[in-house]
Every structure is written in structure tokens, then in C-alpha cells.
């Protein structure tokens, strides 16, 4: 009897969870399907709200324009470069820092940790950052997009929490055998930290891929700008018709708006595709590692 009652409770709960999950899936999936449908629909139909789920007025003109545009393909290559190299740099500075922060016997680590924490809440702002980058000669170079923001305090704390959870006995055994800190870190700690590395790669890679603001402020050479900046320009093109009229007249404004309407959905799909392809392969690590930073300090 008790067993039967327990089962009923569970199935009601299960139904509720299933329904909520389905609603959430629909809420997330619908915009994705809509963007893909709009990208292969007639742009005027898409903008008029006639495309609700399935495409209307099938056309691949948007994709054709995207792949013919040298700036978009160049932006794509730049985004891939910044994502790969930037993520490597992020890992190189953040993971070891997180490990060092676990070594409280090293003098100064507590003080340094407090300094790191301070920067999480207070910063110099955009103007000092710009003046610094400019004085270092990094303005309008690729390095400014790789070095600025390379060290993430938040992620360093996550790493530290993870490393604190590893058994100390492993390290002690390594030290007894004559291993140095660095060798211990490389040969024992890192191999045990695959879940952490997976999560960090995901966080950093997504941040790099989506970033456009630093590129907009610190670069003006189109050859080094990432894809998201071109996407942003296209998406705001429709809203600058008044300025375009002043610069080039009504036909120029109309022509720019038509181009923007035609390619904006295609650019969104093209720019989102790489991460959507890569994520399933990192799913395993993300699942294991997403809670690793849940208890800090």
C-alpha cells in the first residue's frame, strides 16, 4: 500500500517536471528554429512577422551574400583565431593561478587573493584601460583582444575550489618522491582536472566567440576584427537610416536597409554554428564540472 502511494507521488512529480522541461525546451528551441527559418525566408516576409515557424518564400540569397562577403569570412577567421588562442592564454594564466592560490604555505598568497577579489568589485574603468592599452602600443593590434581580460578572477576562484577538493595525499606522495611543484601540477593535478579544464574551455571559448565590445573600442582595422562586430554593424544598420540619408541620400539608406534585412538572419546562423557544433562534445565535461565552483573559499 505504502509502495503504491509512493509511486503515485513520484509520477505526479515526474509529470510536473516533464511538463516544465518541455515548456523550457520549447522556449529555447523555438527562437532557434525561427532564426533558421527566417534565414531562408523572404526578408520582407520575415520582418513582417509572417514567418512563425516554417520558412516563407524560400531563398538562400542571404547565405550567398554572407559567404561572398570577404569581411564576414575574414571576421569568421579572426573569431576562430581569438577563440582558440585566447582560450589557450586564458587557461595558461588562470589554471596555474588557481593552483597557486591553494598553497597557503607560500607567503603572500592570502594577500594576493584579497587583491584579486578587490578587482572583482572595483576597476579603473574604460578610459584608464584604454589609456593603458594605448601607451603599451597595443591599440589596434590583435594582442589587445588576447591580453585584455586574459586573467579571470571569477574562474580562478572556481579553479582554486576545485583544486582544494583534490586529495592532498597525492601531492604529498609526489613531493616525497622528489617531484617539484610544477611537475606535480603538470603530471598529477592536471590529469585529474579534466572536468575543470572542460568547463574552463567552454566558459572562455564562449566569451571570446561572443565578444565584440573590446574589438569595437580598441581596433579599427577591419582585418583584425571579429565576426561579432560585423554582425552587430549589420543588425544596427537598419536603425541608422537617418544618418545614412544625411551621408548618402535616400537611395543609399534604402539599399543599406535591404542588405541588412537580407543577411542578418544568415549571419546569426553562421556565427552561432561553430559553438553549437562543438558543445555536444564538451557536454560530458560540462555536466561533470558545472557545479565544481559552487562552493567557494
Amino acid at each position: 500500500m505504502e509502495f503504491t502511494r509512493k509511486k503515485k507521488k513520484n509520477s505526479a512529480f515526474d509529470i510536473a517536471v516533464t511538463v516544465i522541461s518541455l515548456v523550457l525546451v520549447a522556449a529555447v528551441l523555438y527562437p532557434l528554429i525561427l532564426v533558421v527559418s527566417s534565414s531562408i525566408s523572404d526578408p520582407v516576409a520575415a520582418a513582417s512577422g509572417e514567418v512563425l515557424l516554417l520558412p516563407k518564400g524560400f531563398t538562400l540569397e542571404g547565405y550567398k551574400r554572407v559567404f561572398q562577403d570577404e569581411h564576414i569570412m575574414m571576421g569568421y577567421a579572426n573569431s576562430l583565431f581569438y577563440t582558440i588562442v585566447g582560450t589557450l592564454i586564458n587557461l595558461l594564466v588562470t589554471i596555474p593561478a588557481g593552483y597557486v592560490m591553494t598553497k597557503t604555505e607560500v607567503p603572500g598568497t592570502k594577500f594576493i587573493m584579497k587583491l584579486f577579489l578587490f578587482t572583482m568589485y572595483f576597476s579603473g574603468g574604460m578610459v584608464p584601460a584604454f589609456l593603458l592599452m594605448n601607451s603599451l602600443g597595443l591599440y589596434n593590434t590583435r594582442w589587445v583582444l588576447l591580453i585584455l581580460g586574459a586573467f579571470s578572477v571569477y574562474n580562478c576562484i572556481i579553479c582554486r575550489s576545485f583544486f582544494l577538493g583534490l586529495p592532498k595525499e597525492l601531492e604529498e606522495a609526489a613531493y616525497i618522491d622528489g617531484s617539484s611543484y610544477i611537475k606535480t601540477f603538470m603530471t598529477i593535478i592536471l590529469p585529474l582536472s579534466k572536468a575543470l579544464l572542460g568547463v574552463m574551455v567552454l566558459y572562455f571559448a564562449v566569451a571570446h566567440w561572443n565578444s565584440y565590445f573590446n574589438a569595437m573600442i580598441y581596433t579599427y582595422d577591419a582585418n583584425i576584427q571579429p565576426l561579432q562586430l560585423f554582425l552587430r554593424r549589420i543588425l544596427i544598420l537598419e536603425k541608422t537610416s537617418a544618418e545614412m540619408m544625411e551621408a548618402g541620400g535616400d537611395e543609399y539608406a534604402a539599399q543599406q536597409q535591404q542588405v541588412a534585412a537580407l543577411i542578418k538572419y544568415a549571419v546569426i546562423v553562421v556565427s552561432s554554428l561553430p559553438l553549437m557544433i562543438i558543445y555536444p562534445f564538451l557536454q560530458k565535461f560540462f555536466e561533470k564540472g558545472v557545479m565544481i565552483g559552487s562552493v567557494k573559499g
Binding site: 559567404f67 561572398q68 570577404e70 569570412m73 575574414m74 569568421y76 577567421a77 576562430l80 557544433i277
Partner: peptide, 19 residues
């Protein structure tokens, strides 16, 4: 393979002549 395909397509497919 997927990653290689993406990088190759980006390098090779970019038509240097605008529409």
C-alpha cells in the same frame, strides 16, 4: 574533422570579390 573542415572552409571559401 569538423574543426578542420570549419577552418579550411573559412580559409578557402572566402570569395575575395564582394557581391
Amino acid at each position: 574533422l569538423l574543426a578542420t573542415a570549419m577552418v579550411v572552409s573559412v580559409c578557402a571559401c572566402g570569395n575575395t570579390e564582394p557581391a
